[in-house]
Design a protein around this nucleic acid. Sequence first.
DNA 1: AGCTTGCTTGAACAGTGTGCAATTAAAATT
DNA 2: AATTTTAATTGCACACTGTTCAAGCAAGCT
Lengths: 238, 238
Amino acid sequence: MAEEVGTRPRRGRRREQTALSQEQIVGAALKLLDADGVDTFSMRKLGAEVGAAATAVYWHVATKDDLLELCVDAVYGEFEVPEITEPPQWREAAVATANSLRSLIQRHPWVATTLAEVGLTYIGPNLMAVSDRMLALYRVGGFGVIEADQASKTVVGFVLGVAGNEAATLTRLKRTGQAVEEWTAKSWPAGEAAAQQHPHLRDLYAAYREREPESDADETFRYGLERILDGLELRLRG
Amino acid sequence: MAEEVGTRPRRGRRREQTALSQEQIVGAALKLLDADGVDTFSMRKLGAEVGAAATAVYWHVATKDDLLELCVDAVYGEFEVPEITEPPQWREAAVATANSLRSLIQRHPWVATTLAEVGLTYIGPNLMAVSDRMLALYRVGGFGVIEADQASKTVVGFVLGVAGNEAATLTRLKRTGQAVEEWTAKSWPAGEAAAQQHPHLRDLYAAYREREPESDADETFRYGLERILDGLELRLRG
DNA sequence: AGCTTGCTTGAACAGTGTGCAATTAAAATT
DNA sequence: AATTTTAATTGCACACTGTTCAAGCAAGCT
């Protein structure tokens, strides 16, 4: 009849180790994904990581795509969305939210790729909770139900697009083995030469060359985010 | 029968067909990608499509990733960026540009996935030309060199993020074999039930349920774009 | 005639996701 | 304590992937 198996020894494992669990699998998958990216991630490597046969994973997880969805939802657990009570806190909270999502993608670059394949429509409880808190944020800020959804999707779309491309570029650099400093739009493969036919691109690179090589990416992100929030605020006050 | 010389007999092909070319390969790859997406795309299927051995492709293309980059650049050839001369034309042109990019992604959903893996940093002449024209657009609108870059990246990031997710959702629906109308945030897999614990999500779905099921996605996209352009315009006039 | 160059081929390798029957060991039942 | 049931794991196998490589073929040049 009812088996109230508690938590500890669970069911059976033949030797020293306690049985595999979905949590453990997702944890190991996250470790591999963060370390080597999604391209080189395979079920067999995952099996090796958890010290079991590759196919053992399939008892706890339906398919590789399902596992990836679980992983995506797991990292969404790191997504911090502040809860606010007063309308004036809205903008600051929106900035914090956007930054949190961006740095989450920077920590787990494979998320961007996976999201593009899997979409962010209901994939798990964490994402769901986060979506609810984001909606709350915009509603407190003063947006109506539907418009809060549209506003948050605007910001999230922007962050996903920009941070996703940052991640792709970094992954690409890593793959081709280039140093990050070499980049910054200065010297790059065949670009500088080809840019000569495109006057505005040429001007742009010239302008970037005269700047401190600070982190242009950060600044561009910040610029875009501020513009978007300006536009949204205009709706609130307008 | 026999041979029909397309353009030039070029070098030698042993039988009826003229030799493979990179253009032809990219064309065939696009056909397969548009039809079945990037997941089921393989070099062997491509070989079959062009009527040659799978490995023949490798004479014209270094690697599969390279081929995908060529394909991405090829569809960027469809990206229409109007050329303007007067500042007031800026906003309208920016909208047209954004819409063009979005509908391009809708026609070729695999582009979003591929972009997330490959980045959009120098991948080909078409993208380069388009980038230059986009920069021109914002510069005519009144932005400085660097700021034009930041502004265009903001808009492009938004479009890529939002349209990319639209594409992922559609691909996912297609894969699981659901109809598109069933969606629209109304009834969906395990969502409605799980949403009960999240009051703002519940409100949102309730609100959506009372609307005409027009194309909410279009409206959300349009809303976000307008907010962003509002924010950018504020910078110009501010 | 031969040689060279440009392109194509088939076989082969290492690796992939996953289905399946057989196997284990613990829990439940007798 | 013996037996049955069941959760979990294993190894094998299949079809398929991207890519390498020696070998082959068809034309152009000398």
